[in-house]
């Protein structure tokens, strides 16, 4: 349960991170909050030769309202997201991440880059159509969150890339519901309802390898249908896998119920 040896670089700038990752040639890892990476290292499921610590890079932990959205620096701790008032959906979602000792270290950029299918921030990012700004060897680029997530723990980030900030559009109405077996556990199902540019998006976490839109349910709501019908459609349109924590039928039922609860928060019964 001890990590394999690695070289440690305390980066002073994003440019330095990109440079060191480039030199590591695919064998380097960014160390931010460490709440997902360090367990993986401790279990020796990964043995990177270089860890680039980004925790001391100045200016990466800002939360900034910009027109119609909130920009969150990659190094923003979950505990700061809980406290901020610019983006209430983000604050509510962050409250559900792990425990206090996890939230005080874990970061926005880290959670998005880790792309755990049951984590809260990727679902919110996909749910509000967030855009992610990435620094890489050829400069900065911005991609939609939905294009970033390719699979469970898999993103379109290249080895030399670093997420620097995420732009979360502000929904005009929103709902958030989550079910976990114990408080602080990863979610069995997370449902995010967000009205973005006039249309209501329903996005689920924990039911597939990446955050998944419940498009049939969205259509029912757009046509003036009830939350109950949307819940039923959700259960039908997803294809969750069974594991130790819940059978597939159970997950379908819970997903429907979470959608119903999240819709209730925006006044759709």
């Amino acid at each position: 349960m001890k990590c394999a040896p690695f070289d440690y670089v305390r980066a002073g700038s994003v440019e330095e991170v990109v440079k060191v990752l480039g030199e590591a040639d695919g064998d380097g890892k960014i160390l931010a909050g460490g709440q997902s990476l360090v367990p993986v290292l401790a279990l020796r499921m990964a043995r990177p030769s270089v860890l680039v610590d980004v925790n001391r890079i100045p200016g990466l932990a800002r939360i900034r309202p910009v027109d119609g959205a909130v920009e969150v620096g990659a190094l923003t701790r979950h505990s700061r997201l809980v406290e901020q008032t610019h983006h209430p959906l983000l604050a509510e979602a962050a409250r559900w991440i792990g425990h206090t000792a996890i939230r005080s270290r874990g970061t926005t950029g880290g959670s998005i880059a880790h792309a755990d299918p049951s984590a809260e921030l990727p679902v919110v990012a996909a749910g509000v159509d967030a855009t992610v700004t990435i620094a890489g060897p050829s400069g900065e680029r911005t991609v939609a969150a939905e294009e970033l997530f390719l699979g469970a723990l898999l993103t379109s980030l290249d080895d030399g890339d670093m997420i620097v900030r995420v732009r979360f559009p502000l929904p005009t109405r929103w709902g958030f519901a989550e079910f976990a077996r114990r408080h602080g556990d990863f979610a069995l199902v997370t449902a995010v309802v967000a009205e973005i540019a006039g249309s209501l998006r329903i996005t689920l976490g924990g039911v597939a390898a990446v955050p998944q839109r419940a498009r049939a349910a969205e259509q029912i709501v757009a046509d003036g249908g009830s939350a109950k019908d949307a819940a039923r459609a959700t259960a039908d349109e997803i294809d969750p896998t069974a594991d130790l924590h819940g059978s597939a039928p159970f997950r379908r039922a819970i997903a429907g119920e979470m959608v119903r609860r999240a819709l209730a928060q925006v006044g759709i019964e």
Binding site: G34, Q35, N55, I102
Partner: peptide
């Protein structure tokens, strides 16, 4: 030793942290 049990929780600059998920150099 991988951040689940909470036994190693300490305060770092006043905020709780799992001491097994932080390297001393940090």
């Amino acid at each position: 030793e991988h951040g689940v049990c909470g036994a190693c929780t300490v305060l770092v600059d006043g905020e709780p942290a799992r001491a097994c998920l932080m390297f001393a150099v940090q």
